[in-house]
C-alpha cells in the first residue's frame, strides 16, 4: 500500500499526530499569506497606524488555517476590513485591489480547506474548478475597480451606484439559476 507523501508524526503509541506534506504546507500558506499581504498593504497605506493589529490579523489567519470550518475566518475578514476602514484615508486603486483580492483568496482557501480533513487527497478537477471560479470573481473585481477608477472625477459615480451595479452583476447567476429551474420544471 502506498503511503501519503510527506512526513507523518506519531506519538509513542503510534497514533498519528499529523502529516507534513507539500500539499498541506501550500494549503496553509494559501490561507495565511493573503492576510499577511493584506496587513502589509494596510500598514503601508496608513504608515501611522499601530503595528499590533497586523499581529492580531496574522494570529487570526493562523487560527483560521487550523480551524477553517469555524468563525475564525469570518472574524479575520471582518477584522482586516475593519482595520482598513479605520486607518486608510488616502485611498488608491492598487492597494485596494490587492486587499480585495487578498480577502478573496483567503476566503476561497479557507472555504476549500473546510471541505474535509486537512491533508486529504484532492482531485485535480476540484482544484481546477476552484481556481477557475476564483479567477473569474477576481477578474470581475478588477474590472469593477477599474471602472470605478476610470469614472472617478469624470462621472460622478456614487458608492450607491457601484453597489447597485455589483448587486446587478451578482444577481445574474441567481436569475439564471431561477430561469433554468423553472424551465426544467415545465
Amino acid at each position: 500500500m502506498s503511503t501519503t507523501s510527506g512526513v507523518t508524526f506519531r506519538d509513542r503509541q503510534g497514533h498519528r499526530i499529523g502529516t507534513l506534506s507539500v500539499a498541506n504546507v501550500l494549503a496553509w500558506l494559501a490561507i495565511v499569506v493573503p492576510i499577511v499581504v493584506v496587513a502589509e498593504v494596510t500598514r503601508s497605506s496608513a504608515p501611522t497606524s499601530p503595528w499590533w493589529p497586523a499581529l492580531v490579523l496574522v494570529l487570526l489567519a493562523i487560527a483560521s488555517a487550523e480551524l477553517p470550518d469555524s468563525m475564525f475566518p469570518l472574524t479575520t475578514v471582518l477584522a482586516s476590513a475593519g482595520w482598513w476602514i479605520a486607518v486608510v484615508e488616502q485611498v488608491r486603486l492598487g492597494p485596494t485591489l490587492v486587499v480585495a483580492l487578498g480577502l478573496l483568496v483567503f476566503h476561497v482557501a479557507a472555504g476549500h480547506a473546510a471541505l474535509g480533513p486537512q491533508g486529504r487527497d484532492d482531485d485535480g478537477a476540484v482544484l481546477r474548478g476552484v481556481v477557475t471560479r476564483t479567477a473569474a470573481v477576481g477578474a470581475l473585481t478588477v474590472v469593477l475597480g477599474a471602472v470605478a477608477d476610470v469614472t472617478t472625477g469624470r462621472v460622478d459615480v456614487p458608492p450607491a451606484g457601484l453597489g447597485l451595479a455589483l448587486l446587478a452583476a451578482g444577481a445574474l447567476p441567481w436569475l439564471a439559476g431561477r430561469w433554468k429551474r423553472s424551465g426544467a420544471g415545465h
Binding site: 485596494t96 485591489l97 480585495a100 476566503h107 455589483l166
Partner: peptide
C-alpha cells in the same frame, strides 16, 4: 467609500 464597496465586491459576488 468606494474602496470599501470594492473590498466587499468579491465576497458579495461569491
Amino acid at each position: 467609500r468606494t474602496d470599501v464597496v470594492l473590498l466587499a465586491a468579491p465576497l458579495a459576488l461569491i
